[in-house]
Design a protein around this nucleic acid. Structure first.
Lengths: 217, 217
DNA sequence: TAGATTGTTAATCGATTAACAATC
DNA sequence: TAGATTGTTAATCGATTAACAATC
């Protein structure tokens, strides 16, 4: 059953960052990179970077560093970026448009298998070459493309109903951008992205700083 | 100098969630709520909720629960939601439009003091009643409105230049939505929101689940 | 060999959780 | 008083970090 050690979530998030930084390095002709250099480019300390990489095995060269290509390969494989994964995106408002056009998804191996909206005026449009479909098409697309991940970018009021439809269609992981708390069955994994919470946290620290209070990061 | 204990970042994030859930309860005429009830509505366990609230003092009633209004008041005050904070938003593409129109900001006490873009066609437009200005207006707006927080919603290529301009104008906290790692002076706090990393993490767990491996959450 | 850098250990730190005394 | 629920303690767990032996 269990191969390799489990990788902590915090590490998974950073691995994705390292991969992007390495991508930015492509074309510099740099064949090898030290943990110190990569860490500083990614904004973490080198001990943490080495610890993170150690979850993927040991494939650096002491006294030298890591081969950039090997590093990219290992991280990509671990994250599963090499395989394509189909996702469906529901809600084609401003945020939905931003997400559909966002290159970061495709770069990380995510293909948008379908865009869905309840607004008849949207249906039939093409966004970034992807057709906007009615919600009634959802079950068929999810089945046909073996979609297991759904992204919700609707207004808060619609989010729970959309979530239910996604679950009914067979989606088991949901990324929720709507400002609503979703109720799902046990076997479904929901993750919430709250654009405002990030701003809130930033602002909180800002206030603490100016108040001269100790700030815990 | 130091009043009250420092509140952990994870707690700050959850406090914002509790506040939203409490807001959703308004109008139900519920005068009081137990940690158990609020926790389940917010999707956390009650021990964590009580621990979180304990950073704000002790103001519940044993055997009864918390008065909803008192709770809202305490959390709002701690998070500084009661005061208005001016932010500037740079980049009025799809994501920028989504953020400008996103009610969550205003609800949490953030006023967008200015929208900025480098595209002449955007300048002069009004989005959610806010005027889109040229970058040359940035320093004046930041000074006039005492803005300390900037939000970057530009393409990756433009992000660092915009960041430099924000810092030069006097902004000390930056929320970065662009897929780029930013370099800033020591005294500036940058926080990155990577829409794709969230999807990546979700997908990673999805793969692990289907591979029958142990997943660490 | 001398210098550099990895991979890993062990210490530290912070966050979560269960449990329960306090108390309404 | 009996039942309920808070607030806090202490145990546990996981993540970060410094330090250094291994080794290129």
């Amino acid at each position: 059953m269990s191969e390799g050690r489990a990788i902590p979530e915090a590490t998974v998030a950073r691995l994705a960052v390292y991969l992007r930084v390495l991508g930015g390095l492509a074309g510099t002709g740099l064949g090898t990179i030290s943990s110190e250099a990569l860490a500083s480019a990614a904004g973490v300390n080198s001990a943490k970077l080495r610890k993170d990489l150690s979850y993927l095995g040991s494939f650096g060269t002491r006294g030298v560093g890591y081969e950039v290509e090997v590093l990219q390969e290992r991280i990509s494989t671990a994250l599963g970026v090499s395989e394509h994964r189909a996702v469906v995106l529901v809600g084609v408002g401003n945020l939905g448009l931003a997400l559909a056009g966002y290159g970061g998804f495709r770069n990380r191996g995510f293909d948008i298998a379908g865009l869905f909206d309840s607004d008849a005026r949207r249906i039939g449009q093409r966004i970034a070459e992807i057709l906007v479909r009615p919600m009634s098409d959802l079950p068929a697309v999810v089945r046909r493309e073996s979609v297991s991940i759904g992204v919700i970018a609707t207004p808060a009021e619609a989010a729970q109903a959309v979530c239910d439809q996604l679950v009914a269609a067979g989606v088991t992981s949901i990324l929720n951008f709507a400002p609503a708390v979703l109720v799902v069955p046990e076997n479904v994994d929901v993750r919430k992205v709250d654009l405002a919470v990030e701003l809130q946290i930033l602002s909180f620290h800002e206030q603490r700083k100016s108040a001269g209070l100790k700030v815990v990061l």
